[in-house]
Each structure stands twice: as C-alpha cells, then as structure tokens.
C-alpha cells in the first residue's frame, strides 16, 4: 500500500505542508517495502488548477491513501475518480502521521473546501 503526504522538506521527519496543491514535495511511503520517495510538485508554481495537477501526479504514482490537512474540491474529484482514500493529518510530522494511520488513528477527511480559485469564490 502506498501513502502520499504533502511535505515541506524531503525528509520523513518533515512537517506536513498546510497546502495540498502548493506543497513543494510529496512523500510517498510504501508500507510493504517501508521505502519512501519524494516527488517534486511541479504544480506548486502554476497559476491555477494546482490541486488538479498535483492530484494527477499522486494518482499516476499508484498511491492508495492520501494524508493531508486540507484539500480543494477539484483535487478531491480527481483523487476520488482514482479511488484514492483521503485521511486528515493529525500532527505536524509526516512520520507521526504515517504511524497514526497504520495504527488506525486517523479519520477520513470529509470537509472539502471549495478553494480560492476563480474570483467568484466569495
């Protein structure tokens, strides 16, 4: 099973990034091999639709689970189509969240925000 987390730095000890689409890196942790890799988020600097692009990359890396503090509507649509389950992070460090998830202590993320994209989002 592969778990993805948006992170600020390329390290297991890194903090979870507050933003999904704008996270600089994604940590992909494989629970079978216990290996972790870091993906550069090419979408971080794009002007719009960053969440969609980031979600596409997560899906392309055959991830099963995403742990994130928050998520936009469009990214959630992509991830749901890819049948990726989304859980809400509970603590600051990426490593702690992986452990908490494996121990069954994380909850499904159910509040999806409509994002700040477009200008009509008042």
């Amino acid at each position: 099973m592969k778990i993805a987390i948006p992170v600020d730095e390329k390290s297991l000890a890194s903090n979870v990034c507050v933003s999904f689409g704008r996270a600089p890196y994604f940590l992909i942790y494989d629970t079978e091999t216990k290996e972790s890799i870091f993906l550069d988020n090419g979408a971080a600097a794009s002007t719009g639709g960053a969440g969609i692009r980031a979600a596409q990359m997560i899906a392309d890396n055959k991830v099963n689970i995403l742990l994130t503090p928050r998520l936009g509507e469009n990214a959630a649509d992509v991830l749901k189509s890819a049948e990726i389950e989304i859980y809400k992070t509970a603590t600051a460090s990426a490593k702690d969240n992986i452990d908490a998830f494996i121990a069954g202590k994380l909850l499904l993320l159910n509040e999806i925000h409509s994002g700040f994209h477009g200008h009509g989002g008042k």
């Binding site: 979408a43 794009s46 002007t47 719009g48 639709g49 960053a50 969609i52 692009r53 979600a55 596409q56 899906a59 469009n74 649509d77 992509v78 189509s81 890819a82 049948e83 994209h117 477009g118």
Partner: peptide
Amino acid sequence: CVEFCKFNALAYIKDKLIVFEDI
C-alpha cells in the same frame, strides 16, 4: 492535452479524461 493545458483543467484518471469546466 493534459500536459498541454497550462491551466491544469484536464486530468486523466483510470482511462478517462476529466474536464474541469470551471478551471
């Protein structure tokens, strides 16, 4: 098309192209 769109309005998931009309 997905690579091209600079607004990231397209995604390709599970053999299907998704168009984000609002983007």
